[in-house]
Simulated assay, not measured.
Amino acid sequence: MRMGELSRRTGVPVPTIKYYIREGLLPAGRLTSPNQASYDDSHERRLRLIRALLDVGGLKVAAIADVLAAVDDPTTSVHKVLGVATDLVVPRYGDAEPDAELDTARKEVRELIARRGWLADGDSPAAEALAMALAALKRVGHGAFAEVLDAYADAAEKVAEADLAYAARRAGLDDLVESVVVGTVLGDTLLASLRRLAQADGSARLYESESRVEARRARVRGNGRTPG
């Protein structure tokens, strides 16, 4: 296909495609004449991955180049490629000033990883983000939240299993990385929304009277009906 067709199929403007080629993110097309090049499905898949990393993952061009270099390196394992991609979409908090709460939280995170037998790096961006969250909880008087950390870890293992099972449906490595990035970023929103819904349900069952709970159930059943 010509670049115009590639643009129509992907929704990426021609000038942007040319920019990606100049930056080395997208391979150049196969020359069919001095002024014309041909593109194929591999270019379409790569463009979709670039847009996922940029629009969904929020990565800069340099970070996208790192992910694509890992994807294109035949010596890099799938596990390593996915690690590079997911580490880059984890929020960074900069260099935090060391304090007692953060030191304790980092220790708790390392102990959690060891206790659960996770093959994860205790110094990874995700581990640091978890430690930062635990330290923040300690500072506002909710250090006891660490007591429910394993319950959260149980849920996280199930979510990760579902994430990877979904991603495994994709055949190509570009598609696999795109799926993991999109699933990680948007999956966080899905998970947070489901949590809010479950909290609303649990709160109603715990604190509402039985009559109010029954009234809620009736409304939910009514809203959940499908047209006949």
Rank of each mutant, 00 (worst) to 15 (best):
L25V: 04
R51F: 00
P34I: 10
P27L: 07
S38N: 10
R46W: 08
S33I: 07
D41L: 13
L25K: 01
R30Q: 13
S42L: 12
A28C: 00
L49R: 07
S38T: 14
L54G: 02
Q36I: 14
L53W: 08
Y39M: 09
S38C: 09
N35C: 02
L25Q: 07
L47G: 07
L54T: 07
D41S: 14
L26M: 06
T32M: 00
L49M: 09
L47T: 07
R51G: 10
G24D: 09
R45P: 12
S38A: 15
L31I: 00
P34D: 10
E44R: 14
P34V: 13
A52Q: 02
L54F: 08
R46Y: 11
R30S: 05
R51C: 05
R30K: 11
P27Q: 02
R45N: 12
R48Q: 12
L54D: 10
Q36C: 13
L25P: 04
H43D: 03
A37M: 11
E44I: 09
G29K: 03
A37G: 12
L47I: 13
L53V: 02
D40I: 01
Q36H: 15
A28L: 01
I50G: 05
G24H: 12
Y39A: 04
Y39Q: 07
P27D: 11
P27G: 01
H43M: 02
R48G: 08
A52T: 10
A37S: 15
R46N: 14
A37Y: 03
L47Q: 02
Q36W: 03
L47P: 08
R45V: 11
G29Q: 01
L47V: 13
A37E: 09
L26H: 01
A37D: 06
R48D: 11
D41F: 05
S42Y: 03
L26K: 00
A52C: 03
P34A: 09
A52M: 06
S42Q: 15
N35G: 10
H43W: 07
L25E: 09
T32Q: 01
L31W: 03
S42R: 10
S33H: 03
D40L: 04
S42H: 10
T32F: 04
R48Y: 02
P27N: 10
G29P: 01
L31C: 06
R45Y: 05
P34H: 09
D41E: 15
E44L: 15
R46F: 09
R51Y: 00
L54E: 13
Q36K: 15
L53T: 01
L54P: 00
P34C: 00
S38R: 13
P34E: 12
